[in-house]
Design a protein around this nucleic acid. Structure first.
Lengths: 223, 223
DNA sequence: GTTCCAAAATGACTTCGGTCATTTTTGACC
DNA sequence: GGTCAAAAATGACCGAAGTCATTTTGGAAC
């Protein structure tokens, strides 16, 4: 991706590390999925990955962060797939909905684990370091580029801030995701809510067809 | 509020419970604020509240949920104040921004603790029971009523779904809150981002002044 | 005042996440 | 092969969250 992909084979040490990371991630994924996050101890994960307990904590700073290992690759793939799949000429609201619907589907197979992940990791690691930690931030930046392109093509109003638009759209997605994970929305309602809220949001951003934009009604003063 | 306010004095038992709840909440609040969530143990909280450790867990199912006790009353007050303060004739985007800016200010005094609260509690208690737990859901329902009133007054487009509009606006607030708590936004940027994203969102919902609404451009087909 | 029971409180105990001093492995250099 | 320092792995240990069998309390009924 951004790595220049060195052709040299990584050292034995690097290979061993990669292997351990993978084993730990897989052990955690399997155990979490079969028995649930809380019911699995880090000792079990270590045993299954065939490493000592302390080693687990060299690859993830806490049990919660193991969820990042578990979701990392799927998330990265989903981001690539979604952005790649964008049709530059498609209706903006539909394209955006298509992107985020893909993200929602990531959690379909195990919503409970998804909830833990969203809660513990995606939101609020104060200064988490490493690869794919600010994955969200990087995605939003790329989405902002897309908005900028749309604007350049004259499809969005000139006064739309691409960065803000990207952030806002993500917020709408996130709110929908949470509503579903919390059990307030069924999967179908969730998809519908996402589509409609994005469509609504886009309405204010689209370039008006030929001439004057409808002007805001009722401008009051705040006391 | 919704309680019919029984005039009879609560039984001794009820009074004792209320007192304990208050003592626990206060002890937790003071300790968390002075030393931070992680550095405080539940034993200390119990000692300060002058109850046994087990008692703490009768009033909050986990340490994290103590944060709900800590924030509960401030949150309820803020909701009332914010909704009360709404000017029905004010500009819709500005009124909404004013409401949510008040919520943001709740966390100004201790953003770290706020982050813990938002992370642990506001989001994702699967089936939390009791008073003020679905506080968010109830607030959104009331906000939806406000949107419905605006629409009835002809100030919003007829096809706006009040419930969805309320949910979406809340999502924008939430996203902004998280961005700030995560340190990506300064307090000033946060306020600005909130105002602008709400304004943008409202643009698509406002009733157009006199006649035809600008029609969506470029309708593509999804493959 | 006595009886009785359900609700509440208690604190010793268990379990598990996370640490860290010690040991082992790796690979560079000779 | 031998030496050495840095990186990685290890697992005994620690502290604190949360549990639960037992005790205490409140108050209703008599």
């Amino acid at each position: 991706m951004s790595q220049p992909q060195p052709q040299t084979i990584p050292s034995r040490r690097e290979r061993a590390k990669a292997s351990k990371r993978r084993r730990i991630a897989e052990a955690a994924a399997e155990l979490f999925r079969s028995r649930g996050f809380d019911a699995v101890s880090t000792d079990e994960i270590a045993a299954r990955a065939d490493v000592a307990k302390g080693t687990v904590f060299r690859y993830a700073p806490s049990k919660a962060q193991l969820l990042l290992l578990v979701y990392e690759s799927r998330l990265e793939q989903a981001v690539e797939r979604a952005l790649q799949g964008l049709d530059p000429d498609g209706a903006i609201d539909e394209e955006l909905a298509a992107v985020f619907l893909q993200f929602l589907r990531l959690y379909d197979d195990d919503p409970d684990l998804g909830r833990r992940f969203v809660r513990e990791v995606l939101l609020l690691p104060p200064a988490a370091e490493g690869p794919g930690y600010d994955l969200t931030a990087r995605f939003i930046a790329r989405l902002a580029d897309t908005f900028a392109a749309w604007r350049s093509a004259g499809r969005l109003a000139d006064d739309v801030d691409p960065r803000l638009a990207a952030q806002s759209t993500f917020s709408l997605y996130y709110g929908t995701l949470v509503g579903w994970l919390n059990g307030q929305l069924s999967a179908a309602e969730r998809d519908d809510a996402l589509r409609r809220s994005i469509a609504l949001h886009c309405r204010g951003m689209l370039a008006v067809a030929p001439a004057k934009r409808a002007r805001t009604a009722a401008r009051g003063k705040r006391p």
